[in-house]
Design a protein around this nucleic acid. Sequence first.
DNA 1: CGGCATCCAATAGGATACTG
DNA 2: CAGTATCCTATTGGATGCCG
Lengths: 132, 132
Amino acid sequence: MVTRTAAERRAESKAAYDAYLAECPARQLLERISDKWVSLIVNALAEGPQRYSDLSRRIASVSQKMLTQTLRNLERDGLVTRTVTPTVPVRVDYGLTPLGRTILPLMRAVKTWAESNMDDVIAARNRYDTSA
Amino acid sequence: MVTRTAAERRAESKAAYDAYLAECPARQLLERISDKWVSLIVNALAEGPQRYSDLSRRIASVSQKMLTQTLRNLERDGLVTRTVTPTVPVRVDYGLTPLGRTILPLMRAVKTWAESNMDDVIAARNRYDTSA
DNA sequence: CGGCATCCAATAGGATACTG
DNA sequence: CAGTATCCTATTGGATGCCG
């Protein structure tokens, strides 16, 4: 590991990944986090660790498959922790990792944006649909 | 239109939409903006209005279908303007609306997050895959 | 140039049944 | 409770051809 200045590291990281490029890993990561289930799950976990069943109830109509699948991906990507308590029946808690907490403000902003600009979007759709 | 105080309107809007609810329109809007093409297009348009062909070149490997489809949706939702100049051949420019500019910081943050945390995510994946 | 229409392959994702 | 496994349908999205 060569020592570099902050500026050097910044320049390097700037050049390293570019989501505009199709083959860039960042493109796949962008795709992964640009997902409604990711947004809802991370937002839900903002209030602290929660059990699988809590998340399931909180996020209306999420199927067991999508909830598990999304949580597994988030865990693998280092955004979410999974803690199993081997009681009977088993208890599983999910929480945000430090890395996961860095994306929380973004996910929160996106969800909030959708909720607070819904009226404007509806108005725009009405204009578009009636004019067309 | 009844006159309300800012606090009343805020409280009302707060209660009006909730993306956690499956039937809520905000859930569909969240789904719509949680899309890699939306993110990339809005980011690209941050630098000012651009032609269709510019966007196509900038966003590597986006198909004509997805680019047009996403732009149409964004236009309908009031985030993007579409300006046709009837020359031969025709010239079409896309730009962000004021509403579109309100979502730009979020889309920019998401894309930047993906690019700047790629290394951490890769490391997390390696840990997950080798331990499992 | 900037599309639209169509067809088709791939993927996402819901429903159901079963388990430690 | 918190999953896994399987099946099957619906949606996504690429490829192609045509057009003003």
